[in-house]
Amino acid sequence: MSGNGKAPMVAVEGVKKVYRRDAEEVKVLDGLSLEVPEGDFVALMGPSGSGKTTLLNLIAGIDRPTAGKVVVAGTDVAQLGESELARWRSRNVGFIFQFYNLIPVLTAEENVALPLLLTSLSKKERRERALTALKVVGLAERSQHYPRQLSGGQEQRVAIARAIVADPKVLVADEPTGDLDSKSAEEILALMETLNRDFGKTIVMVTHDPRAAQRAHTQHHLEKGVLSL
């Protein structure tokens, strides 16, 4: 799939994921393989229970496959220990959640600066980078506002600023427009397109929304734990 000879940003090979529910085993992913080239904008679609969020979690390094390999940005994620994996996430992955997941007691700027606490940057540098990220999402003037003082669309933009502030290679988004009205959703999708086009971010997005999926360059459909095209 990556015909130019360059290693893909995300390479998923024969991945199985089995959850144990009481005595019963539930197969969520069943030998799935997928490659995402660097700079691509991928939409993962499929019905509930198809395994698309599980696949996204594996790529993001917050879950581990039962079998198979997940290589992201050149690192075999399953090989990392718990704390190595946490460090790896902080450098390589930016998260965008359906419900924004901002910390309510922190201001927009403090929320954005959160991932930078895991770097060796000084307080001043962290502040500057957080403000730059807020500028990119068009919310520099709201830096001192708390999440409850922002609209849903604004909260999601702060969350996107948090996702890009540490300059990760991959952005993972789980239903980023799922909780927004169509106008806000449109703004968020446009922002993600900009990040992909102008900042070269590789984006993997899970969505139900066909309009959102259309903004991606590549669409993958999942059904019962395998890709169906």
Partner: peptide, 14 residues
């Protein structure tokens, strides 16, 4: 709980 999950995802250690 969700806040804790978010912090862990962002890379904060246990």
């Amino acid at each position: 709980t969700r806040e804790i999950g978010t912090l862990r995802a962002l890379g904060f250690s246990r």
